[in-house]
């Protein structure tokens, strides 16, 4: 979040509420859950770290909290470093995989039942994302993010199908069926 806020300040100094609406526009429906106070907490932290400074803006006496935030040279440096970083979120499938292995080994539960439950959850998320993506009024930039979410959920479902195939063939003694 800190890096994102810094990068959004790189174009020009801005009020907190401007940053917030820019973020929400870029996130589309996924931005709706964004906490209103989050941006201000982040800005305060960035200020303490010396990455931004702020000044009270003039000319708007009727509204409270008119601070304009500006990147410091350190902040600019940090944005450059962030952009150059190669980083990609890893889907963590190991835990669920191990849950299936443990369930089958100790006969705690039928792995296929666990797969079914997981599929319901992934389908539910896919439904939300897919329905949002069908909205024709969606901003194409925000739509791109949704497309990524949909693609990843589809990949998860495909993997769950593979899990189901394997565990449905496994007999309860833990040996592969037909082996």
């Amino acid at each position: 979040m800190q890096d994102v806020v810094l990068a959004m300040l790189a174009k020009e100094p801005a009020h907190g509420y401007e940053l917030r609406s820019r973020l929400r526009a870029a996130l589309g429906p996924l931005g709706e859950a964004m906490n209103a106070g989050q941006i201000y907490v982040t800005l305060t932290r960035l200020g303490k770290a010396g990455l931004v400074t702020s000044q009270r803006a003039e000319g708007l006496p009727d509204r409270p909290e008119r601070r304009v935030y500006v990147l410091t040279p350190e902040g600019q440096q940090r944005v450059a470093t962030w952009l150059a970083e190669v980083n990609w979120p890893k889907p963590d499938l190991a835990e669920f995989h191990l849950k299936l292995v443990a369930a089958a080994t100790a006969r705690l539960a039928d792995p296929v039942t666990l797969v079914d439950a997981q599929r319901r959850e992934v389908l539910r998320r896919l439904r939300d994302a897919q329905r949002a993506a069908l909205d024709r009024s969606m901003d194409p930039v925000a739509g791109l993010l949704l497309e990524g979410v949909v693609l990843r959920l589809r990949a998860d479902l495909e993997w769950l199908e593979a899990c189901e195939r394997l565990w449905a063939q496994h007999d309860p003694t833990g040996r592969k069926a037909g082996a």
Binding site: P29, L30, A33, D116, R124
Partner: peptide
């Protein structure tokens, strides 16, 4: 049939 799910009513996209 191995599973039969009615879609939950409303979505929470980003929970």
């Amino acid at each position: 049939f191995v599973d039969d799910v009615a879609s939950a009513a409303t979505g929470t996209l980003y929970d």
